[in-house]
Simulated scan of single mutants.
Amino acid sequence: MIRQLARITRLLAFPLTAAALPAAALAGCSVAGPGGAEAEEDGAVRNVQISADSVARLSPGERLSVDLRAREVMYHVAFEGLDLGRVDLDFGEQGKAQMAAAMAPLFSHPYSPLDAQDGRLRITADPSNFAELTADDIAALEVERMIAREHRSGAPTAQPQSLPDECVEQTIYFYVDIVVGETVQSVLCEHTILVCDGSTCDVHTYGGHEYLFCDGQQSWNDARASCASEGKSLVTINDAAEEAWVYGLASALSTQKWWIGLNDRGAEGNFVWDSGEPAGYTNWYAGEPNDAGSGEDCAQLNRFYPELGWNDEPCSLHLRYICESD
């Protein structure tokens, strides 16, 4: 993690005019700063807006420098039309990283900010700047490197009453590890996506069983009920061959997460299948299951796509799901 004890007063590093932005921010104003970026004070956290306009106002050859030593700053990046190739992430003496290259793993991830509901990506050096994250959430992030939360009180744009029917907001927190010189710097990114229920289920057969791959994103309990309404259970995976088949079909439909039937809701650490079968074959990802954060009792595929391996998640999350006949 980036660890500086002193509060950094400079928000954005620009030639000649760097002092203008923090002075305005400390006054509690919202003004156009160097390069067109805007800053405003929000309690202890200063918010800096970065957009295509910010880059458009730069002089030819000038680059926008984002100071990620500043721990009490939240950067709000409106990435639509933004030329990330002209934005640098500044880690002081450690060096700089071009934002386009540094953020490439995040933009190519199944939970990419390209799907963000408000077209924004928020970046900070200090996870405590996200007021909605609990201490358990932050501890889980240190281990998981990515967590999803739904309808958190105070979460960005979390207004369930304004959402379309049968849709929920899912806020994704994602650590990006950036190699700068001889060091690795971790930056926490956050964006919010909209996930919706649906009615489409692809039907396939394997080993004499019928499987439904359903795109409607539901909690584990609701997914289980949907499977039961079709005379099925959430999928039971009995061996590596069946897993490879399930994984291949699921990933072809979506590289995001899929619920499977494995769970330890009855007794912590005692995983059983929704079908009632004991957990014989398992393929947990390294370090999983870990019951991180707010309690994770239900298993899913694709958390570490494209790598195989299962993960435990809070059962309340809305994910796609797979049903299987007995």
Rank of each mutant, 00 (worst) to 15 (best):
N129L: 01
R46A: 09
A104W: 10
L141F: 02
L106C: 07
R46L: 10
Q98I: 11
E142W: 03
L114Y: 13
F79N: 00
A56Q: 09
Q98E: 14
R122E: 12
A44T: 11
I50C: 08
D115N: 11
Y75G: 06
A131L: 09
F79A: 00
P60T: 04
Y75M: 01
T134A: 10
R120A: 11
A140T: 02
R120M: 09
P110L: 03
Q117C: 08
V48P: 07
A37G: 09
V143N: 12
G43R: 10
K96R: 15
A39G: 14
D67R: 14
Q49A: 11
S108E: 09
G95Y: 08
G85W: 10
Q98G: 15
L106G: 04
M99A: 15
Q94K: 15
G92V: 04
Q98H: 13
E38D: 11
A44P: 12
L64N: 05
C29P: 08
A70T: 10
A116P: 05
E142V: 07
D67I: 12
A52W: 04
R63Y: 08
H109W: 00
A44D: 15
V48K: 11
G119P: 06
D136G: 11
L89K: 01
L121Y: 02
M103T: 03
L89W: 07
R69P: 01
D118C: 08
L84A: 04
E62T: 07
A97R: 06
T134F: 00
R120D: 07
P60N: 03
P34E: 14
E41W: 13
G43E: 08
L84D: 07
A32W: 08
A39T: 13
A125R: 02
A102T: 00
L89Q: 06
P127I: 03
L68V: 07
T124G: 01
A116M: 00
A70E: 10
S59P: 06
L114F: 08
N47M: 14
H76M: 11
V77I: 15
R69F: 03
S108A: 12
S54G: 08
L82H: 10
I123K: 02
D126R: 14
A37W: 04
D83Y: 04
L133K: 06
G43F: 10
S30A: 14
S30E: 13
L64M: 12
I138N: 07
R57N: 11
A100F: 09
S59C: 12
E80C: 00
A139S: 13
L58G: 08
L58A: 07
L141Q: 03
E93T: 15
F91N: 09
S65L: 15
G81K: 01
H109M: 00
D88H: 08
G81A: 04
M99I: 00
D137L: 06
D126S: 10
A101M: 12
A135I: 10
M103N: 00
R86G: 01
R69D: 12
D42G: 13
R120T: 15
L58S: 02
A101P: 04
L141N: 09
I50E: 05
G33Y: 00
E40T: 15
V45C: 03
A104M: 13
M99V: 02
V48T: 05
G81E: 05
A97Y: 05
L133D: 03
A140M: 05
T124K: 03
G36L: 05
F91T: 03
A39I: 05
L89R: 00
T134R: 02
G33H: 05
I138M: 06
L84T: 11
S65D: 12
P34I: 09
G36Y: 06
A97V: 10
E62M: 09
E41I: 14
H76F: 10
